[in-house]
Computed example of a mutant assay.
Amino acid sequence: MLVSTIELFTRARRADHLGIKGAEQLSLDWPAMISRKDEIVASWSKSKNATPGNLGIPALRGHATFAGPHEVTVDGRNYSGDKFVIATGSKPARPLIPGAEHAITSDELLHLKEQPKRLVVIGGGFIGLEFGFALARAGTKVTLLQSGLQIGPALDHDIRNALLECANEAGMTIKTNVKVTKIESDRTVEAEIDGRKEKFYTDQVLLATGRPSNVESMKPERANIDLDHGAVKVNEYLQSVSATHVYAAGDAAGKHQHSPVAWYEGPIAAHNALKGDVRKVDFSVFPSAIFTIPAIGQVGLTEEEALKRGLKMKTSKLPYEYNPAAGVRDETEGLVKIVYEEATDKILGVHVIGAHAEDIIQIAAVAIKGGLKKSEVGAMHYVFPTFGGAIFDTMAV
C-alpha cells in the first residue's frame, strides 16, 4: 500500500513536462498515508477474522503449543485432533548485531508516525529493496548495506544492473560486501567494508535480513515434527516428513516466502489433511515480483541458471523505451529479457523491470505453463498500446 501511494507520488512529481502544472509543489503526507494503510489492513483483518464463523468453524484466539503428537495447548486449555495444519506465518529476523535493539523491523517501519529524513537499511534482499526504494522515492536519504557481493542475489544480472541504475536515479546509496559491527544508541551504524571501518549516521535503522518461520514457538519437537531452517520439513503434499498427521502451508512450510504461495498452499494442505494425500504442490512455473519502484517480475530460469544447467540458450532483450505505452505515460525506465533454448525455441525464463512488471510477468507465466514457444508468442496479436505488449515484442526479437 505504501508502495502504490509513493509510486503515484513519484509519477506526479515529474509530470510537469506532460502539461500538468504545479507538480513540483506536491508533498507527501506520511501520517495520512500510514493512517490509510491501517484502515485498509483493519478492514481486511475484520473480513478474514469473520470467515471461520461464517463457515461454521469454531475459532480460538491465542498462542498454541504442542503438548504431544495429537494435542495442543491454547492459553492453558488442551485440545486434541487427528490432523493438524500449521499456517503460522513468519516474523522479521533480528540479526545478532550489537545494538540491534536500536533498530526497527519492517513491521515497525509500517507504524512510524513520521517519515525519517535518513534511513540505513541492513539487507539487500527483496524486503530491503522494496522499503529502500519506497523511502528513497518518498524523499528519504537511503543507504542500503548488503553483506553479500551483490543486491538481489536471485535476480538475473541484466535486471540487477538496471535496478542499480534506477537506485542511483532515486538517490539511493548502495554498499556491498558490508559487515555491520555495531548499532549505537543514537542509531549510528558502524561497519567494515573491504577492511575499512565506516560509520553511517541516520535517523532510523531498518533490519531487513529475512523472515524466519514462527513454527519453533509452537514446540514442534513435542509432536515429533522435524524442521528445516525453522520451518516444517514437508513433502510434495505439504505433509510433515516426520509426523504424517501434520501439514504446513506458507511460511510455516518455508519453501517460498510470498503471500500468494500461502494462499495457494493453504487449500492444498487442508484438502490433503481431510481427504488424503491427493493434491501436490507444483512450482514448476512460479512467477514472482519485487515491488521496488519500478517493480520487478520474474518467472523461470535466469541466464546464469540456464548456463549452470548446461543449456544451449539465447536471450532477447528490449528496453522499455521501445514500448509505446511506456513512452506515452513517460515510464520508460525498464527492460524485458527472454531466456530461451536455442534448438527448440522453448521459453526458459522471462525477467522484467519496469512499470507494471508485476502484472505483465503473468502473461509470460501462462505462456510457459502452456508450452508456447518464443516465436509463437512473438507472432500473436496483442492490444496496443499496452505495457503487456512489451512481452510480445521482446518474444518477436
Results as ranks from 00 to 15, higher is better:
residue 2 L to W: 10
residue 4 S to M: 06
residue 4 S to V: 06
residue 12 A to Q: 07
residue 18 L to T: 11
residue 22 G to P: 11
residue 25 Q to M: 09
residue 26 L to Q: 06
residue 29 D to G: 10
residue 29 D to C: 07
residue 29 D to Q: 13
residue 29 D to M: 11
residue 38 D to W: 01
residue 40 I to Q: 08
residue 44 W to Y: 15
residue 46 K to H: 12
residue 53 G to P: 08
residue 56 G to I: 09
residue 57 I to S: 13
residue 60 L to N: 03
residue 61 R to M: 12
residue 62 G to M: 07
residue 64 A to F: 04
residue 73 T to Y: 00
residue 74 V to F: 05
residue 79 Y to R: 04
residue 81 G to Q: 08
residue 94 R to I: 13
residue 97 I to H: 13
residue 99 G to H: 04
residue 102 H to A: 11
residue 102 H to M: 10
residue 107 D to K: 14
residue 113 K to C: 07
residue 113 K to S: 14
residue 114 E to R: 09
residue 115 Q to Y: 03
residue 119 L to K: 02
residue 121 V to A: 03
residue 124 G to I: 11
residue 139 G to E: 07
residue 147 S to D: 02
residue 149 L to F: 06
residue 155 L to K: 06
residue 162 A to D: 09
residue 163 L to G: 05
residue 167 A to S: 14
residue 173 T to F: 02
residue 175 K to H: 13
residue 178 V to P: 06
residue 181 T to M: 12
residue 183 I to A: 05
residue 186 D to H: 11
residue 187 R to H: 13
residue 190 E to M: 14
residue 193 I to A: 03
residue 197 K to S: 15
residue 202 T to N: 09
residue 205 V to G: 09
residue 221 E to V: 04
residue 222 R to F: 01
residue 222 R to G: 01
residue 222 R to C: 10
residue 223 A to S: 09
residue 224 N to S: 15
residue 227 L to W: 07
residue 234 V to W: 00
residue 235 N to V: 12
residue 237 Y to I: 04
residue 238 L to G: 08
residue 241 V to G: 10
residue 245 H to I: 07
residue 249 A to D: 10
residue 254 G to P: 13
residue 256 H to C: 00
residue 259 S to M: 10
residue 264 Y to V: 04
residue 273 A to K: 03
residue 275 K to L: 02
residue 276 G to N: 01
residue 279 R to N: 13
residue 281 V to K: 00
residue 282 D to C: 01
residue 284 S to E: 02
residue 284 S to W: 00
residue 285 V to F: 05
residue 291 F to A: 01
residue 294 P to I: 01
residue 295 A to K: 04
residue 297 G to E: 03
residue 302 T to G: 06
residue 305 E to A: 15
residue 308 K to T: 08
residue 311 L to V: 14
residue 316 S to F: 01
residue 321 E to W: 06
residue 323 N to T: 04
residue 325 A to N: 08
residue 332 T to Q: 15
residue 336 V to C: 12
residue 337 K to M: 11
residue 337 K to Y: 04
residue 338 I to E: 05
residue 347 I to T: 05
residue 352 V to G: 03
residue 353 I to R: 09
residue 358 E to A: 15
residue 360 I to G: 07
residue 363 I to V: 10
residue 364 A to T: 11
residue 365 A to P: 08
residue 379 A to M: 13
residue 380 M to N: 08
residue 382 Y to S: 03
residue 382 Y to M: 03
residue 391 I to R: 09
residue 394 T to R: 01
residue 394 T to A: 11
